[in-house]
Amino acid sequence: MPRLSVIVPAYNAAGTIASAIRSTLNALPRDAEIVVLDDGSSDATAEAARGVLDARVRVLSRSNRGVAATLNDLIGATDSEYIARMDADDLVLPGRFRRQLGAMGGTVDAVFTTVVTWGSGMPGLPRPSAISEEDFGLHLLLTNPVAHSTMLARRSAVQDVGGYRVLPTEDYDLWLRMAANGARLRRLALPGLAYRVHPGQVTASAQWRRASWENAELAAAYSALAERLIGAPAVRITSLSIDDSRTPDEKRAELDSFTGLFESALHGHAPSAQRALRRKLAERRSWLSARLEEKAVAT
């Protein structure tokens, strides 16, 4: 069995899948494979993927079942020690997998990278900002700090929590459950991926975001991690913003309570990490305040 499997779910990606595979091959270490699963595309995705002639590439096809089911099928179709993610419309940057595998060590369960954005709008260059294993969970309580297609993880850590679930933001849900289960996650500062931005992607949809904020399973996963890290269950700030069962004052009080617990949990973390987390918390508090003010004006 290969040491690393790069799994690539693909749906109607005939125009980008070949370049995605080639960029992955260019960065692929020894003893690794790429496995593409065409999720019932209506275009020539599978044919384009099979057109990249390399023994390290496997291409599978079946009827459409959605991205979470496709990822679980890809995990089931591989048996490597490590699993890495790649999307059918992104590009792997040189050195990505070498740096991630080198950062795993004996205690880390998943390593992510920052990304360079390209496509619609101006290209985005990240500030080279790492997130340590000690700080990653607290970042998850504020926002999802990583792109799904940058993940490299121990297969055992993913399987220990049951793999992916079929719900919005299946990636964020997986990170929450892994962290709540004691997995150690980190983000490297250097970008490992050129992340394509385009108007039609699912994450650009307001409907998709709303579905994520309303999802009960995701809410439970978030609350479980909050209980582990700050000592009490909590509600996502995004979910709090759309909770019509609470008054604006009740929402502010809930956020103030969360802030107090979060601040207490910061003790013992590196000063630079505390500054980054406080800055992000302030951004999230401002975001909720703006949402509450907008709703007050609208009514």
Rank of each mutant, 00 (worst) to 15 (best):
R3K: 14
S5P: 07
S5Y: 11
V6D: 01
P9A: 09
P9C: 09
P9D: 06
Y11P: 02
N12T: 11
N12W: 15
N12A: 09
A14C: 01
T16A: 03
R22S: 06
T24W: 14
L25C: 01
N26H: 15
R30Y: 13
R30W: 14
D31T: 08
L37H: 11
D38T: 06
D38F: 14
D38H: 12
D39N: 11
D39V: 03
S41I: 09
D43G: 03
D43K: 00
A44E: 02
A44N: 00
T45C: 12
E47N: 02
D54N: 13
R56C: 05
R58W: 14
V59A: 04
R62Y: 14
R62V: 10
S63L: 15
R65P: 08
G66F: 07
A69L: 04
A69M: 04
D73E: 07
I75N: 00
I75K: 01
D79A: 11
S80H: 01
A88Q: 11
D89A: 10
D89S: 10
D90L: 06
L91F: 11
V92S: 07
F97Y: 14
R98L: 02
Q100P: 05
A103W: 07
M104T: 01
G105A: 02
V108P: 08
V108R: 09
A110G: 07
W118Y: 12
G119M: 05
M122C: 08
P126Q: 06
P126D: 00
E134F: 03
L138D: 00
L140P: 03
L141N: 05
L142H: 03
T143G: 09
H148I: 10
S149M: 12
T150Y: 02
T150G: 06
L152E: 04
A153G: 07
A153E: 08
R155P: 01
S156T: 15
S156N: 14
A157S: 09
A157W: 14
D160R: 09
G163T: 06
Y164V: 05
E170L: 03
W175P: 04
L176K: 06
L176R: 02
A180Q: 10
G182K: 05
G182R: 09
A183F: 02
G192V: 04
A194D: 05
Y195I: 09
R196I: 09
R196H: 01
V197D: 04
G200I: 04
T203F: 14
S205N: 03
S205C: 09
Q207V: 14
R209A: 03
S212H: 11
A216P: 04
A216Q: 12
L218D: 01
A221D: 10
A224C: 10
A224D: 13
R228V: 13
G231E: 02
G231R: 02
A232C: 07
P233D: 00
A234N: 05
R236Q: 03
T238N: 10
S239A: 10
S241L: 06
D243M: 07
P248L: 10
L255R: 03
D256H: 14
F258T: 03
F262W: 10
E263F: 08
S264D: 12
H267F: 13
P271H: 09
P271N: 06
A273F: 15
R279V: 12
L281M: 12
R284T: 10
S286V: 12
W287M: 07
A290P: 08
R291V: 15
R291D: 15
L292I: 01
E293V: 13
K295F: 15
A296L: 11
A298H: 15
